[in-house]
Protein backbone atom coordinates (compact mmCIF):
# COMPACT_ATOMS: atom_id res chain seq x y z
CA UNK A 1 0.00 0.00 0.00
CA UNK A 2 1.03 3.55 0.16
CA UNK A 3 1.10 4.85 3.67
CA UNK A 4 -0.39 8.33 3.68
CA UNK A 5 -1.96 10.35 6.44
CA UNK A 6 -4.07 13.50 6.60
CA UNK A 7 -2.55 16.43 8.47
CA UNK A 8 -3.29 20.09 9.11
CA UNK A 9 -1.28 22.78 7.30
CA UNK A 10 0.07 25.03 10.01
CA UNK A 11 2.62 27.17 8.21
CA UNK A 12 3.88 27.74 4.68
CA UNK A 13 7.66 28.08 4.49
CA UNK A 14 10.29 28.69 1.80
CA UNK A 15 11.04 26.36 -1.14
CA UNK A 16 7.46 25.16 -1.55
CA UNK A 17 7.56 23.47 1.86
CA UNK A 18 5.06 23.53 4.70
CA UNK A 19 4.87 22.58 8.36
CA UNK A 20 2.01 20.20 9.02
CA UNK A 21 0.57 19.22 12.37
CA UNK A 22 -0.96 15.90 13.29
CA UNK A 23 -2.19 15.82 16.89
CA UNK A 24 0.72 17.95 18.06
CA UNK A 25 3.39 16.22 15.96
CA UNK A 26 4.91 18.68 13.48
CA UNK A 27 6.71 17.74 10.32
CA UNK A 28 8.16 19.59 7.37
CA UNK A 29 6.77 18.35 4.06
CA UNK A 30 6.94 19.33 0.40
CA UNK A 31 4.10 21.01 -1.49
CA UNK A 32 5.73 20.41 -4.88
CA UNK A 33 2.92 18.10 -6.04
CA UNK A 34 -0.05 20.26 -5.08
CA UNK A 35 -1.32 23.75 -5.78
CA UNK A 36 -3.10 26.55 -3.95
CA UNK A 37 -2.57 25.18 -0.45
CA UNK A 38 -3.28 27.63 2.35
CA UNK A 39 -2.85 27.50 6.11
CA UNK A 40 -5.81 25.68 7.59
CA UNK A 41 -6.12 23.10 4.79
CA UNK A 42 -5.86 19.39 5.51
CA UNK A 43 -3.56 17.57 3.10
CA UNK A 44 -2.81 13.94 2.59
CA UNK A 45 0.89 13.17 3.01
CA UNK A 46 2.94 10.35 1.54
CA UNK A 47 6.72 9.94 1.93
CA UNK A 48 7.17 13.59 2.85
CA UNK A 49 5.02 14.98 0.02
CA UNK A 50 1.50 16.39 0.02
CA UNK A 51 -0.53 14.44 -2.55
CA UNK A 52 -3.88 16.18 -2.36
CA UNK A 53 -5.95 18.60 -0.39
CA UNK A 54 -8.79 16.92 1.49
CA UNK A 55 -12.27 18.07 0.65
CA UNK A 56 -14.19 18.76 3.83
CA UNK A 57 -17.55 18.88 2.12
CA UNK A 58 -16.99 15.47 0.53
CA UNK A 59 -15.73 14.04 3.83
CA UNK A 60 -18.89 15.22 5.55
CA UNK A 61 -20.96 13.70 2.77
CA UNK A 62 -19.22 10.34 3.25
CA UNK A 63 -19.81 10.50 6.99
CA UNK A 64 -23.42 11.39 6.28
CA UNK A 65 -23.60 8.31 4.09
CA UNK A 66 -22.52 6.21 7.09
CA UNK A 67 -25.08 8.06 9.20
CA UNK A 68 -27.77 7.30 6.62
CA UNK A 69 -27.05 3.65 7.25
CA UNK A 70 -27.76 4.27 10.90
CA UNK A 71 -31.20 5.72 10.22
CA UNK A 72 -31.90 2.84 7.88
CA UNK A 73 -30.74 0.47 10.58
CA UNK A 74 -33.02 2.01 13.11
CA UNK A 75 -35.97 1.32 10.87
CA UNK A 76 -35.38 -2.20 9.75
CA UNK A 77 -32.43 -3.77 11.51
CA UNK A 78 -32.17 -4.49 15.15
CA UNK A 79 -28.70 -3.45 16.20
CA UNK A 80 -27.42 -3.99 19.69
CA UNK A 81 -25.87 -0.97 21.29
Amino acid sequence: MCLAIPAYVEQLIADDQAIVNLCGVRKEISLALVENIVVGDYIIIHAGFALQKLDQWEAERTLAMFAEIITLNKNDINVEE
Partner: peptide
Protein backbone atom coordinates in the same frame (compact mmCIF):
# COMPACT_ATOMS: atom_id res chain seq x y z
CA UNK B 1 -12.89 17.22 11.09
CA UNK B 2 -9.47 15.59 11.33
CA UNK B 3 -10.14 12.95 8.67
CA UNK B 4 -8.91 10.06 10.83
CA UNK B 5 -10.87 9.29 13.99
CA UNK B 6 -14.18 10.04 12.30
CA UNK B 7 -13.49 7.11 9.98
CA UNK B 8 -12.52 4.70 12.76
CA UNK B 9 -15.67 4.94 14.84
CA UNK B 10 -16.26 1.39 16.08
CA UNK B 11 -19.99 1.80 16.67
CA UNK B 12 -20.57 3.02 13.13
CA UNK B 13 -18.69 -0.03 11.95
CA UNK B 14 -21.14 -2.30 13.75
CA UNK B 15 -23.97 -0.55 11.93
CA UNK B 16 -22.39 -0.88 8.49
CA UNK B 17 -21.65 -4.52 9.27
CA UNK B 18 -25.29 -5.05 10.25
CA UNK B 19 -26.31 -3.51 6.95
CA UNK B 20 -23.98 -5.83 5.03
CA UNK B 21 -25.40 -8.81 6.88
CA UNK B 22 -28.93 -7.72 6.05
CA UNK B 23 -28.31 -7.05 2.39
Amino acid sequence: MKYIDEFREGRLAQRIAACIAAE
